[in-house]
Design a protein around this nucleic acid. Sequence first.
DNA 1: ATGCGTCGGTCGAGTTCGTCCAGCATGAAT
DNA 2: ATTCATGCTGGACGAACTCGACCGACGCAT
Lengths: 144, 144
Amino acid sequence: MLDELDRRILEILAANARVSLKELAQEAGLSSPSAAERLRKLEERGVLDGFTISVNPARLGYPLQAVVRVRPMPGMLHIVDRLIQETPEIVECDKVTGDDCFVAKMLVRDMAELDTILDRIAEKAQTNTSIVKSTPVKRRLPPL
Amino acid sequence: MLDELDRRILEILAANARVSLKELAQEAGLSSPSAAERLRKLEERGVLDGFTISVNPARLGYPLQAVVRVRPMPGMLHIVDRLIQETPEIVECDKVTGDDCFVAKMLVRDMAELDTILDRIAEKAQTNTSIVKSTPVKRRLPPL
DNA sequence: ATGCGTCGGTCGAGTTCGTCCAGCATGAAT
DNA sequence: ATTCATGCTGGACGAACTCGACCGACGCAT
């Protein structure tokens, strides 16, 4: 499916998505047009979903991170789903199997804000909140 | 801390980190040198942490995603920490407060692989695994 | 074996983009 | 009021991207 060159290209871009085609090409051992073509195909195939940035939440004014598990009360699933999507402090959320229906990552400015947001959710769901103390594994690619 | 232009720049880059400086500049209403300078300062200040890609795990051969909560057995914390970091299928992991010490996101090819990896962890920790059914909120920026 | 089509690659030319520099406007401090 | 610092613009130069043409390797059928 992916050959060695594609893997190499993905790894280089994962480390720095803004490298020039020229640099990408020579790090992968190709000419620029070839690298550009492979890049195009990776996007076309949907393997490569997009280019984005990684920000430092603390430097943006969000020193506190929490993982919140959310179990909607009976009949509230859709409403809770919408509430989560419309809460901008929730920066990612998965719907999962098991008792906890959602697992969300939240960024907040302080405990007061965390409390406010959780109160709003608690009207429609049980929640279980863990404060993030550190991040042993930062977002990375799986084995290619 | 950040002004309106910086926010705009971050949003544009979050949507597409590979836009040309020229395009970034005109979407933000600036000249290229100004946009370049602001970009440089955002990186320098550490607000902007880096440029990366978003991949489609399924297209990479990982159709299954799981959220695993990990509670190391007494005395095993450091060993479990290392095991997590050295498991490449774990693509992100936070250390959190509460009974569950770690919350990890895992990508696997199938149930068998999930089982293998969890067995390895289960020698040193209790685990609680939820399969991801969908992702209501894909990674996004908090309010700026 | 030979010829043919396809795929993926390089090379070179034209165009676009990024970076550097000089000059100007604004606002704060002396 | 003058001065200084900051941040912006516009133009010029060098670098990077894109497009077309061409080449070689491979698979396949004759």
